[in-house]
Simulated scan of single mutants.
Amino acid sequence: MNEFTVPVVDISAYVDPAGTAEARAAAARSFDAAARTVGFVQVLGHGIPTAVTDAFGAALDSFFGLPLEAKKSYRTPPEINRGYSPPKTESLSLSLGLAPSNRMHDFFEAFNVGAARSDYPGVDLPVVDYAENVWPEEADGFREAVAAYFDEAGRVARTLTTMFADALGLPPGFFERYTDHSLDVLRMNNYALPPGEVTLDGDLTGMGEHTDYGIVTVLWADQVRGLQVLGRDGAWHDVMPADGALLINLGDLMARWTNERWMSTLHRVKPPIVEGCIERRRSAAFFHDGNIDAVIETLPTCLDADGTSAYPPVTVGEHIRAKLAGSRAGVANTEAEREAARVLAARPA
């Protein structure tokens, strides 16, 4: 059996205005091959300055280092995908309809910011989906550092969709009309608990098995074990970012668009345990999900030979709301049979 590896793709030809057509075509081919086989990609040449990511990492430390009660003051209702989520208040497996007794058991804590209604003046958007952000006053410099990284990650996501159009043989700018008021969210995660707060019994879940919901995810993460990806061999494999790399994976909407030519790869986070303690791990996922009212249906070039698709059309809003109702509100998603079946196949009998 071949060793599992996450392919590396240099996208600098798409970032640099002087990038040649030949270099762009080579990057697009490489990404297409990776999306067909693994679904996770190490991306280099993304152009995010180290100063931005350093300040961003410090901002995460500043907020997550606050007392729990201070962090809890920034909680929002489950339907508002903003603010703070304490440990054991979510279950990502429920976004696929999977989790024992609908138990909210993922031990990570998180803070979410996203594209707000005020970011798209003149567009009539639902307040719940495009909620205004809450910003912790106790964490010095948090808002400025997070906003700077949010802008950079969004640029990378839009650069990637430009490359996606080339890789899929679509007209230039194809995805722009689906993303000009995109439902973008940056989720900052912290995997660390005080000693003695949990029992390290082998069943502790950092973040349950799930696929990402939207078009593409741009992931910044520490070089610490924990992230695991489900390979085509049916086994879970550890993945860590290479030096200077961002991890890129595709969401359900891209799998629907391409009729699974490109997969939304299942992944999870298992806590790295060193000498009986959980080793701290930070990550930040920028979810580029598309316009809330965009209708996603299989691309004509990706239909089956008989002209059919594995997926019916769905709006971005319908799909995302069903997923969030599972992970954040404990309502099992009944519309994710294909992804759930892949998780169940990978679990021990």
Score class of each variant (00 low, 15 high):
Gly202Leu: 14
Leu186Arg: 04
Arg232Thr: 11
Leu227Cys: 09
Ala167Thr: 04
Gly202Asn: 13
Trp220Pro: 00
Gly208Met: 07
Leu219Pro: 00
Asp203Thr: 15
Pro172Arg: 09
Ala153Pro: 01
Tyr213Gln: 06
Leu230Ser: 00
Glu197Gln: 14
Phe164His: 04
Leu160Ser: 01
Val229Glu: 01
Gly206Ser: 13
His181Ser: 11
Gly196Pro: 01
Leu200Trp: 06
Tyr191Glu: 08
Glu176Gln: 13
Arg155His: 09
Leu219His: 06
Asp201Lys: 09
Thr159Ile: 04
Asp233Ser: 10
Leu227Trp: 03
Val156Asp: 00
Gly234Pro: 10
Glu197Lys: 12
Leu170Met: 13
His210Gly: 09
Ala167Trp: 04
Phe174Lys: 06
Trp220Thr: 08
Phe164Asp: 03
Val224Gln: 07
Leu193Phe: 04
Val185Leu: 10
Gly154Tyr: 01
Tyr178Trp: 06
Asp222Thr: 10
Pro171Gly: 10
Ala165Arg: 08
Phe164Asn: 01
Asp212Pro: 08
Leu230Cys: 08
Gly206Gln: 13
Asp203Gly: 14
Phe174Pro: 00
Leu193Glu: 10
Leu168Arg: 03
Ala192His: 15
Val198Trp: 00
Gly154Thr: 08
Pro172Met: 08
Thr162Lys: 10
Thr161Glu: 13
Met163Gly: 04
Leu204Tyr: 06
Phe174Gly: 04
Ala157Ser: 12
Asp212Ile: 09
Gly169Ser: 12
Val156Tyr: 00
Arg177Ile: 10
Gly226Asn: 05
Gln223Leu: 07
Asp166Val: 11
Leu170His: 11
Gln223Ala: 14
Ile215Ser: 02
Ala153His: 05
Thr211Asp: 03
Thr205Ser: 15
Asp203Trp: 06
Arg177His: 13
Glu152His: 08
Glu176Gly: 03
Leu183Ser: 06
Phe175Ser: 01
Asp203Ala: 14
Asp233Pro: 09
Thr199Ile: 13
Met163His: 02
Asp212Asn: 14
Gly169His: 11
Tyr178Thr: 05
Asp201Leu: 12
Ala153Phe: 05
Gly206Glu: 12
Leu230Trp: 01
Ala192Tyr: 12
Gly154Pro: 02
Phe174Cys: 10
Asp166Ser: 14
Tyr191Thr: 11
Gly234Glu: 12
Asn189Ser: 14
Val229Asp: 01
His181Pro: 01
His210Thr: 07
Val229Ile: 15
Gly169Phe: 12
Ala153Leu: 07
Asp180Ala: 10
Asp166Lys: 07
Arg155Gln: 08
Gly231Glu: 05
Phe164Tyr: 14
Arg232Gln: 12
Leu200Lys: 09
Leu230Glu: 04
Thr199Gln: 11
Pro171Met: 10
Arg187Pro: 05
Met163Lys: 00
Gly154Val: 05
Phe175Asp: 01
Leu227Asp: 04
His181Leu: 05
Glu197His: 11
Ala167Val: 05
Tyr213Trp: 14
Thr161Arg: 05
Val218Lys: 00
Gln223Thr: 13
Asn190Gly: 09
Tyr178Leu: 15
Asn190Ile: 03
Glu209Gly: 11
Gly202Tyr: 12
Ser182Phe: 02
Glu152Cys: 08
Thr161Lys: 03
Asn189Met: 14
Arg187Ser: 13
Arg177Met: 09
Pro194Ile: 11
Asp222Ala: 11
Arg155Thr: 07
Phe164Ser: 02
Val216His: 00
Phe164Cys: 02
Arg187Phe: 10
Val216Asp: 00
Asp233Cys: 12
Asp201Cys: 13
Gly169Asn: 14
Gly206Asn: 13
Met163Leu: 15
Glu209Ala: 15
Leu186Ile: 12
Tyr191Ile: 08
Ala221Ser: 15
